[in-house]
Design a protein around this nucleic acid. Sequence first.
DNA 1: ATGAAAGCGCTAACAG
DNA 2: CTGTTAGCGCTTTCAT
Lengths: 359, 359
Amino acid sequence: MTSPKSPATLLDVAERAGVSLKTASRAVNGEPHVAEATRQRVAQAALDLGFQLNSMASLLKRGIRSSFIGLVTGDLANPFYSSLAKGVERELRSEGLQLVVSSTDENGERERLLVDEMVARQVRALIVVTTQESNESLARAQDRGIPVVFVDRPAAGLTADSVVLDNRAGARLATEHLLAAGHRRIGFIGDFSRLPTHLQRLDGYLDALAGAAEQADTARGAGAQDPRELVREDLHDAAGARGAALELLALPDPPTALFTSNNRVTIGALTAFRELPSAPALVGFDDFDLADVLGVTVVSHDPVEMGARAARLALETLENRQPSGEGVILPVRLVERGSGEAAPGVDWRQGPRATATAS
Amino acid sequence: MTSPKSPATLLDVAERAGVSLKTASRAVNGEPHVAEATRQRVAQAALDLGFQLNSMASLLKRGIRSSFIGLVTGDLANPFYSSLAKGVERELRSEGLQLVVSSTDENGERERLLVDEMVARQVRALIVVTTQESNESLARAQDRGIPVVFVDRPAAGLTADSVVLDNRAGARLATEHLLAAGHRRIGFIGDFSRLPTHLQRLDGYLDALAGAAEQADTARGAGAQDPRELVREDLHDAAGARGAALELLALPDPPTALFTSNNRVTIGALTAFRELPSAPALVGFDDFDLADVLGVTVVSHDPVEMGARAARLALETLENRQPSGEGVILPVRLVERGSGEAAPGVDWRQGPRATATAS
DNA sequence: ATGAAAGCGCTAACAG
DNA sequence: CTGTTAGCGCTTTCAT
């Protein structure tokens, strides 16, 4: 139905409109100093020919690399990353920039490849959730004058902007919350042990535990247990986390509460609970759809805002050339929904599911 | 730390290596007929200068538009769309293409803008979840020789490939399932009434209801009730769906079961149930995280595969120039988890949550 | 195996 | 207000 012939160029339009190339250019780009009549004629010719500016040539000529910003994340299908992407996109859109996305699947080699490819495609800036495995290609990107902004995980081995969460404080908050409910044996299920987010969250957990142990020591002088006993790491998907939860809860002296260190792990643990006669208390890092329906207490934050912040940093760097290198730390907060308030031995799933009574 | 000066060009590399521009080009691109020693020298020079090919110029010269594929969806943060994006990306990656994403927020004007922008940026192909509000810009894209593939919603007013779900069959399946459990008053909560997915799901629901009414008529000769009575439409977010669910269930003669026509609507209904002393039976369209934990019966399908299929169609069209226009219809299936099997008056949330017993 | 010249489609300087 | 002349960074003939 449609002619698949080579697209019309600006020269074709100019000829058809009976004007010079430059005049056509001016008209098409809405520049001033073009007579209204001329503008009309050019517009008509463009329409007739189905003309569309070749931005490739246009940008090349103007010395502009492109209108694309690259986002490199772990896995687009993870709601955390897709929310991040949404935040980035929202911020970009107002500047007329476009978002190129890609997933590393947490593979360092893949990250290198993707970054190199994006650099070759002339992205203006790069926003990346790095695997932390290699940073050479990111360093190269920086050398080429492409601003690199790290999100969720800090810059490793190079000076660049970053936007991360207050992971340690969040984990401490969560653990202290469980301690306050009377729990003394609190399990920890975490993602890849290499990730800084993981390490910080583990530190927060250990901080809280140490604080509690200190108090107990002062009071009773008892020796503290090994806090690592209930820690399980390198669980990157829900299935693995489910297994770890089941394993922990099958221990001779099982934990009465769990701190799950991200959304996937939390979901895995909840899946495990379904197979159990009673569920331990739980606090998860990252909020998620239905957490309120399930009554799950979480450490909450705003991934969309995080993406937007990162995008803004990238845009500013694009203008000023100031890779401040400061590092933004976004706050987190505890959202109590019941699963973390349960006392040891109490199954929070048994609690009242209805909040509405007669009115 | 880094020099933000203008990037090195191939000419710089050539000079530094003491070869001609063309030789440098050949070496950099790994073309044959270059002496190994020369290749080495060029590689070293490129490394020294931090050189990276300007694909903009390269592609321009070769008459190639770009290596980008555009994906236009409703909202990236919706897991359905982000899974779709993941599928598209996976398929593209093997071809060395990149994915540019954007969200319309279901706004027709915005869709037009985004599509035009992508066309201006020379995307090679366009995969779009159209708002169905306007298709002029998509038609224009097609005219420019850019393959357009419709996903989730069929092509409107133009001949193009499409990948959609068997919405009608899925909805019929869901409704029949509820009918089989003894439900006679089944509510329907749907998205924007303008969307073909909505209309087809509504049709499937009405099909099932009509089938049941016919049987009843034959048996008892009773007059059928107005099937539209329990239908609520244009609920596009969870909050709205929650309201609709509450409203339906507060009716004098409320439904004993609900069919929720997509993931957001389902989540809204589940949120509503939390505020109620007892929950009606429920079947939702679209599977979602934690549906198994919550025991929610759904009409399931594979959004990642859907994205991959669409991407493959786009790639094929890029090669053969065959916009078959056939239209792929992906199957759906019912996944029973309890919420749809409950008889009228029975709260499925009360059912046994544990599937594991003594072993 | 290497190089010189031409030009992809467009826009920035300058004219007029 | 309009046109002419260069040339962005690269790849392609067509030589050598």
